[in-house]
Amino acid sequence: MLTLLLIIAAPAQENGNNLLQSLASCRAIADNNERLACYDRVSKAVEEARQRKDIVVLDREQVQKTKRSLFGFSLPSIKLFGDGKDDDSLKQLVGTMRASAAQPGGLIRFTLDDGGVWETTEQSMNRLREGDVVTIKPGSLGSYIATAPGRRAVRVRRLR
C-alpha cells in the first residue's frame, strides 16, 4: 500500500490544502469532459506547486528515514510528518558503531552508521568498538539511554 505525505508551504492564494480539495471536488462533476478538464487543470496546478517546492510529496519510507535521522533531537511539537495515527513511532534507534573517541572527563563520543553523532553524559561504559550494535532508547525527562552488548547502559545526548 502506498502512503504519501504532502508537506505544504504554499502561499495563501494557492494553498496546497485548497489544491487538494479542488482535486477531490473534481470527482463530483457528472459530465465526463468537464470532470477531465477539472482534473487536468488542478493536476497541472499541483505539479506546478510541486516544482516550485510549495508542496513536497514524501512516501512512508522517506518519512521513517527522516524520523530516524531526527531521533534524539529536541524538536517543537508539530505534526510535520502526519498525525502519527497510521505511523509506527520510533521508540528506539539501533545502529552500528562506526567510530568512537574518548573525551575529557571520561566521556565517549561515537558515530553510528546513519551518521548520527552521540556523546555520553556520564562516565560510562568501556570504549565501544567499530561494528558494535548500539541501541538508544528514550529515558526519563528527555534523556536517552544507550546500550551495547556486554556493556552497561549509559545516558547519552545527540550532537548531530
Rank of each mutant, 00 (worst) to 15 (best):
G82R: 00
P76T: 02
A102V: 15
G82P: 01
A99T: 11
G95L: 04
V63W: 02
Q103S: 08
L20N: 02
D54C: 10
L75P: 04
D87H: 05
F81Y: 13
R98H: 07
D31L: 09
R50C: 04
S74I: 01
A101Q: 12
K67G: 04
D40M: 04
G16Y: 00
I78C: 10
R60D: 05
D88Q: 11
A30I: 09
V42H: 01
Q62F: 08
Q51V: 11
K65A: 15
L80N: 04
G84H: 03
K79Q: 09
S74D: 06
K85F: 03
L93C: 05
E34V: 02
K85D: 06
N18E: 14
R27D: 15
R27H: 11
A12Q: 10
R68H: 05
S89E: 15
A37E: 06
T66S: 12
C26D: 05
S69K: 12
S22V: 02
A45H: 04
D88E: 11
A24Y: 10
I78T: 14
L58A: 01
L36A: 13
E61K: 15
L58C: 02
P11K: 02
T96H: 07
R50T: 10
L80R: 13
G95R: 02
S77W: 07
K53D: 14
D86K: 06
G72P: 01
F73W: 07
R52K: 15
A12W: 07
D40Q: 10
L70Q: 14
V63Q: 01
A49F: 02
L93G: 01
N15I: 00
V57D: 00
G82F: 00
M97C: 15
V56A: 12
C38T: 10
P76L: 05
A101P: 02
L93M: 10
M97W: 09
R52Y: 07
Q103H: 07
L58P: 01
C26K: 03
T66R: 13
S22I: 00
M97T: 13
R35E: 02
L20F: 12
Y39K: 02
V46W: 04
L19Y: 01
S22R: 11
Q13P: 09
K79Y: 06
S69T: 06
G84Y: 01
D83W: 08
E48A: 12
R52S: 10
L70I: 08
R41S: 12
G72D: 04
S89H: 14
E47F: 14
N32C: 08
R35A: 08
D88M: 06
S22K: 11
Y39D: 01
S43N: 10
I55Y: 00
V94M: 04
V94Y: 01
E48Q: 10
Q21P: 00
Q21N: 08
V42A: 05
L19P: 04
N33Q: 14
Q62E: 15
N17Q: 14
L80I: 10
T96C: 06
A24F: 07
I55T: 03
A30Y: 03
R27M: 07
F73Q: 11
K79G: 07
V94E: 08
E48S: 07
R52C: 11
T96K: 14
S77F: 09
G16P: 01
S100E: 07
N17A: 13
E48T: 05
V94T: 12
T96V: 15
M97V: 15
